[in-house]
């Protein structure tokens, strides 16, 4: 019973942690951003799972359906997706500038070059 009721959330937790692992462990800045993306997308999956109602259809009102999934998490995640891509774009722009001025996008190189001068 527990398994069928909650397996969804457990997989989502694993996805989140894979993303977070990339952000912490990887020294390559682009890989960090990809990790951040995976982390955020997994949180979106969690929210949408919360909004699921068994047997519910998409929340567009019609005569054919009586049960709908919860529209509120959908609205929240629409906003969160947009925030996510905004962050990604800004982060990548920063990476390009870092590459120009440090000549590398590896954290290790940047730290050694900063300590040299």
């Amino acid at each position: 019973m527990l398994l069928s009721a909650l397996y969804n959330y457990w997989v989502v937790v694993l996805l989140m942690m894979t993303g977070l692992y990339m952000v912490i462990a990887q020294g390559n800045l682009i890989k960090k951003i990809i990790g951040l993306n995976v982390f955020q997308t997994s949180v979106f999956i969690f929210y949408i799972s919360v909004g699921k109602v068994t047997g519910g259809s998409a929340p567009i009102l019609s005569q054919l359906a009586t049960v709908y999934s919860n529209p509120l998490p959908h609205v929240l995640i629409l906003t969160a997706i947009v925030v996510g891509i905004a962050t990604t774009a800004l982060a990548l722009a920063l990476v390009l500038r870092i590459r120009q001025s440090y000549g590398s996008v590896e954290e290790q190189d940047i730290l050694t070059r900063d300590s040299q001068c």
Binding site: N37, T41, F44, I48, S49, G51, K52, G56, S57, A58, P59, I60, Y68, S69, P73, H74, I77, L78, I81, V82, G84, I85
Partner: peptide, 15 residues
Amino acid sequence: SMGAVDVAFTEAAVG
């Protein structure tokens, strides 16, 4: 599959 059609549309375009 969760019935979140608007979100699916946006995620496909963005992600």
